[in-house]
């Protein structure tokens, strides 16, 4: 195990290490958009974002299954917290989509929200992106620290899942596909397709085409919004950790917590809104818009 120094050592220890190394204490981290492959299973690459994704899954599962394993009518402890969070989300679903559809959408929306939330918040866990495997040719200090010109030559074992476009794109595709499935199941094939292909007049036809384009654009907007925000926050923490070790990232942790929550909420809320629209007929949309 090797540690990337800036994110683990308080700056008060820096001068002594600098004197021993005889050069720059550390460099700015290498920013890579794509995830790092740690090992492969056959043709399948296991990346640091995939491992972080599994960790996020385990946290969510442990949290919910643990809290709901022995539920009591008077909640306490973990059950109380999970119920509070889930009931807020359930109330939000029912407000947006109505009591019937809100309850139907809740499992899907809750899974999206909590999965993204913990995937986002992984960026503030100590060790994420600072524990890893050193690149060949590096010389760890004290056997475990990378300093000086070697300080950014680390392949992190963990990297927040939301900083991987594969993760955000997969969730965006799931969101859009599930929305379409609900649309077809609720409205029927003819009425749902009629939202996109209508030949009543040229304007409606063009609007329908734009709706199809919007569905694909939605995938891009969903995935890149989440990816961009979390990736930028992650880079911000890495750079600040290099410039002002220990103190810099700590100051921005609350902001990253907030951004992580907002991005998870935006993703879940938009999915919920599109689901609500999908189960609403075209005429009902116009009727409600008229009101």
């Amino acid at each position: 195990m090797y540690w990337e120094l800036p994110h683990l050592i308080p700056s008060v220890f820096a001068p002594r290490i600098l004197a021993d190394a005889g050069g720059p204490l550390w460099l700015l981290p290498q920013i890579e958009v794509g995830p790092n492959t740690l090992f492969t299973i056959g043709p399948f690459p296991v990346t640091n974002t995939l491992i972080a994704s599994w960790i996020s899954m385990i946290i969510v599962i442990a949290l919910f299954v643990g809290a709901t394993r022995k539920m009591t009518i008077i909640p306490k402890g973990l059950q109380n917290f999970v119920e509070w969070a889930a009931s807020l989300l359930l109330d939000f679903c029912e407000e947006v989509a109505g009591p019937r559809w809100g309850r139907a959408f809740f499992p899907f929306i809750a899974t999206i929200f909590f999965f993204i939330l913990f995937a986002n918040w992984a960026s503030i866990i100590p060790g994420i992106e600072s524990l890893g495997t050193p690149e060949p040719g590096t010389h760890p200090v004290l056997g475990i620290f990378l300093v000086g010109n070697d300080s950014n030559k680390l392949i992190p074992w963990f990297r927040p899942a939301s900083t991987d476009l594969n993760f955000t794109l997969a969730l965006a595709v799931i969101s859009v596909v599930v929305t379409q499935i609900y649309g077809f199941r609720t409205l029927g094939f003819g009425q749902h397709v009629g939202k996109y292909l209508t030949f009543r007049d040229p304007i409606s036809f063009i609007v329908g085409i734009l709706e199809i384009v919007a569905e694909f654009a939605r995938i891009i907007s969903f995935s890149f919004r989440l990816f961009g925000n979390v990736f930028a926050g992650d880079v911000l923490l890495l750079v600040l950790g290099t410039l002002v070790p220990f103190i810099g990232p700590t100051v921005f942790y609350p902001l990253e917590l907030f951004v992580g929550f907002i991005q998870a909420f935006v993703f879940a809320a938009l999915t919920l809104v599109f689901l609500s629209l999908a189960v609403t007929g075209h005429d009902e949309e116009h009727a409600s818009a008229a009101h």
């Binding site: 599962i61 299954v65 009591t72 309850r103 809740f106 499992p107 899907f108 991987d164 799931i174």
Partner: peptide, 27 residues
């Protein structure tokens, strides 16, 4: 990796929807 993330979400959804959400909604 894209497929892996699809599967991850599917597994998470199944487990939560099978073991957590019903008990939560029931309570």
């Amino acid at each position: 990796l894209f497929l892996a993330q699809l599967v991850n979400f599917g597994i998470l959804y199944y487990i939560l929807n099978r073991f957590a959400f019903p008990a939560l909604r029931k309570t």
